[in-house]
Design a protein around this nucleic acid. Structure first.
Lengths: 112, 112
DNA sequence: TTGACATGCAACTATATGGTTGCATATAAG
DNA sequence: CTTATATGCAACCATATAGTTGCATGTCAA
């Protein structure tokens, strides 16, 4: 459950999540198919997604099936981003005010 | 407006956004204050946030004031994460079903 | 049992990243 | 004018990251 944000930073990993979104429960070979890199590279990315708890796995004989883990994406990211989202309209208003009418004193200029 | 996800991957940068959240319109020196790294390191992080369009700046004399840019955080991240969030409950149900009662045929096993 | 398939492990490489220091430039203040 | 403050630019360094290749192991099928 290490760094979810770091796990999401790589476009290949986001692509893997996309592929799992459109087709859940795929094996490494499935996910590797059509990708422009070695199977091992894909395996590493999947392991990072596993470690970040974004993907959970289920062994089926010799195949390791990968499933989107729905929890942390919503929990962590949405919660963190939501904090800023909540202030969106308000901040936008403040920002415009700031540009239109800069305050007078030094303190106010910097702290407004 | 480069990679928002990459910009969010670093904890220092997320901390900077946090600081701007609690106090908008701070200068580089303000934001550097209390941080365990050089001013130049902070400047680099801020520049990455600027490039990702997460922070916008406003020159006030010799001071460069930094403001949270409310748009892309909500737009990009929330939209991308939301795609997965929408399928949260549904996916959770599917996942449990999968574990409880694995399908019969090879095809179904892998493609269910 | 033998061979094919699916995955894992380990070593290695190149580049990206996060940090440093030193110096230059622009604005504000005495 | 001189000095202090705020920032920018550039070179440099250490480590993290994303990729490779080669080989080992476990499972399925003939």
């Amino acid at each position: 459950m290490s760094d979810v944000f770091a796990a999401l930073a790589d476009s290949t990993r986001r692509a893997l999540l996309d592929r799992l979104f459109s087709q859940n429960g795929q094996s490494l070979s499935d996910l590797h198919h059509g990708m422009e890199m070695s199977r091992q590279a894909v395996a590493k990315h999947l392991h990072i997604l596993e470690t970040a708890n974004l993907v959970s796995v289920h062994w089926q004989g010799r195949e390791k099936l990968h499933y989107l883990n729905p929890v942390p994406l919503g929990e962590i990211v949405h919660r963190w981003v939501g904090k800023f989202e909540d202030a969106r309209v308000e901040a936008l208003t403040d920002f415009k005010k700031q540009l239109e009418k800069p305050p007078a004193t030094e303190q106010e200029k910097r702290r407004a």
